[in-house]
Design a binder for these strands. Structure first.
Lengths: 163, 163
DNA sequence: ATTTGACCTCAACCACAGTTGAGCTGATGG
DNA sequence: CCATCAGCTCAACTGTGGTTGAGGTCAAAT
């Protein structure tokens, strides 16, 4: 185990401390989420405070926040030192709002679905579930074109990753 | 506009009635979610009740239900006629439960995040957000391997796992 | 001297849910 | 007679979040 000065960590040490595999760290670096200097043999040398960024990424993953958004908020973070407590509060409040939005979207869907269970019509003209934006006002009679809008609601964790 | 008997629809008619583009319909067919016979010129000919299946797919998309799961529940649906109201109720109740699960997962995250905003430690040893399964009981001191639900040794050889 | 361990790069691949385009057939209309 | 439309197939591509493997380098240990 090669010893590094306390604020210069090899990728191996980062892996041991964070549990994030090298492939993912490489990937994050390519995406600009983290960065490193290089040592004599071209090895990555990470600043100690990079661990904080990686922690943020881990949290974002748990919250199902896409890395593109993480990259966005990372542009508002200091690059030369660890994010402060204030930084963390700012970011986490943004993420909390996103969770709230997602929860509300799900609640809305739950209500619609509950209403539709009894009905069961799945009418292409009238069903709320099939016509999210109730955009069928003022379109003449006849079949209605569906799913135009670009409502993208990020979903919760459950349905994937059957490890 | 070629007229079809009332219960045999061309893909163009399906598109007009459902709004689902041909590429998606082809895709669903490849996945076994829908099926068709073929006409003289190899065109798809859909049964009228196939529209119901497509409606189900549209609903599942809104609910962020993966197609693989839709395929699963479709195996329990009749192939020779439209799903009955009872079928719809059964399926939609399953989906409702999935929404509930997702909502609860988000609520849990919201609570953890709220707790962590004030704290802001993001400690690799103690933070709830970083250690979802609070699996750090009974470990010795020192850095803790993260995001591995059941396999974790603080100082063992590096364990590799695919998520 | 050689073998191991740690690290590097780059390319290819996974699932998901399709889209896009090329190149084809077959029926219809002017 | 030819254009155009509706449809077909198949291959390649999109974006997200990485993983896997091949092949190379460097330093330490045997």
């Amino acid at each position: 185990m090669r010893a590094s000065p306390d604020d210069h960590l090899t990728i191996g040490e980062i892996i041991r401390r964070t549990g994030v595999p090298a492939s993912a760290l490489h990937f994050y670096e390519r995406k600009g989420l983290i960065f490193s200097e290089r040592g004599s043999g071209n090895q990555r040398i990470f600043s100690r405070h990079m661990i904080r960024r990686i922690s943020l990424i881990i949290v974002a993953k748990r919250l199902n926040i896409p890395l593109s958004h993480v990259a966005e908020v990372f542009t508002t973070l200091p690059t030369d030192r660890a994010p402060t407590h204030k930084d963390w509060q700012r970011v986490s409040r943004i993420w909390k709002r996103q969770l709230e939005e997602r929860r509300r979207a799900i609640e809305t869907l739950e209500q619609e679905l509950t209403g539709c269970i009894g009905c069961g019509c799945l009418s292409l003209k009238a069903c709320l579930l099939l016509n999210p934006d109730d955009a069928l006002e003022g379109r003449g009679p006849g079949p209605v074109r569906l799913q135009e809008p670009n409502v993208a609601l990020p979903d919760g964790p459950s349905t994937r990753q059957a490890t």
